[in-house]
């Protein structure tokens, strides 16, 4: 490259302060409520309206990729998705206009932090996952599937469904899907990375190295959460990917070309060995529960992703039609 470098600091962002843009000073910080990949999450109050909000701070680390792609994608998806069971991104604000550095040549208007402002939710599902009544469970599951169905209709995979990413409000009446940091739009023939979804809720196709997957990855996670609601403990608490697969096969049986055509061609299939017993015995551990609930879990946790129930069909299942 024979180009010359742009003069450092020549771009004075102060000249370009976004007209009328709100800054984080419009909010009073109440407490820190969490820590994400890109920064902290705070509970805050809008000073003007008094409305509560959750502020997710995004750190710009001046890395090689510039503005983080994951954040751009999350913002893009959240602006596209508009549903009562999906967290609403209210606005994006910037940190206030304090100069950077101590009068060096590198001053610029903003420290470089931005904040995504979300509607405030009381807590996450993790908190209630191990002590909810059967009617609450049905209520949560229905909303989770409605939100997920809406994502899937709009060609968005969530890819990280777990208790901490499902938020509850309104005295336990409202559930919303949150944290779309790993979510992405999909196409039928798209190829993705397989390092997504927290281990316990990760479906067998990802653990076996599939890079061509679809909506069914989210349904597996939903099935794991549903089962955890009933059992009041995690269904497959693996510590390593290997152990995760063993725990799945122990209950769901060992995959073969008969129950899952194409499975032997997945990259990591050859590395796994059948454990005993290899027969599916998932239903056995739920012998004291509502049979409609167990039927639905059974159809969500089918090894072969193409046979796994869709969010739409799950919402039509007998479980949701029968009243408690």
């Amino acid at each position: 490259m024979d180009g010359e470098e742009a003069p450092p600091g020549a771009l004075n962002l102060a000249d370009y302060a976004p007209a009328g843009a709100r800054t984080v000073d419009c909010f009073r910080r109440i407490r820190k409520i969490g820590e994400g990949t890109y920064g902290e999450v705070f509970e805050a109050m809008d000073i003007i309206t008094g409305e509560r909000a959750a502020l997710k701070k995004i750190k710009l680390d001046d890395g090689k990729e510039g503005f983080p792609r994951q954040i751009l994608r999350e913002i893009k998806l959240l602006k596209k998705l508009d549903h009562e069971n999906i967290i609403r991104l209210k606005e994006i604000v910037v940190s206030p206009g304090t100069a950077h550095g101590a009068g060096g040549s590198d001053d610029y208007m903003y420290r470089g932090d931005i904040y995504m402002v979300f509607e405030y939710m009381d807590h996450d599902l993790k908190k209630v996952l191990h002590h909810s009544t059967p009617s609450q469970v049905k209520y949560y599951m229905e909303q989770l599937l409605k939100g997920l169905h809406y994502c899937h209709v709009n060609n968005v995979l969530h890819r990280d469904i777990k208790g901490a990413n499902l938020l509850i409000s309104g005295g336990g009446k409202l559930l919303k899907l949150a944290d779309f940091g790993l979510a992405r739009p999909f196409t039928r023939d798209g190829s993705f990375t397989n390092h997504v979804i927290t281990l316990w809720y990760r479906p067998p196709e990802l653990l076996l190295g599939a890079t061509n997957y679809a909506e069914a990855v989210d349904i597996w996670s939903v099935g794991c959460i549903f089962a955890e609601f009933l059992l009041r403990k995690p269904l497959f608490p693996g510590r390593t990917e290997q152990e995760q697969l063993s725990k799945i096969f122990e209950l769901c049986g060992f995959p073969n070309e008969e129950n899952w055509p194409g499975v032997s061609k997945l990259p990591l299939y050859k590395t796994i060995r059948p454990t005993t017993p290899t027969k599916r015995r998932l239903r056995d551990i739920f012998h004291n529960f509502d049979s409609h609930a167990v039927d639905l879990i059974d159809r969500m946790l089918i090894l072969n992703p193409t046979e796994r129930i869709s969010a739409h069909d799950a919402l039509c299942a007998a479980y949701f039609i029968t009243k408690m």
Binding site: E5, A6, L11, D62, G112, I114
Partner: peptide
């Protein structure tokens, strides 16, 4: 790009703008 090459942090600031 022949004439100028910008540092990632400069581009990041411009993206933000």
């Amino acid at each position: 790009c022949s004439r100028y090459v910008f540092e990632p942090r400069t581009i990041c600031r411009m993206e933000f703008l």
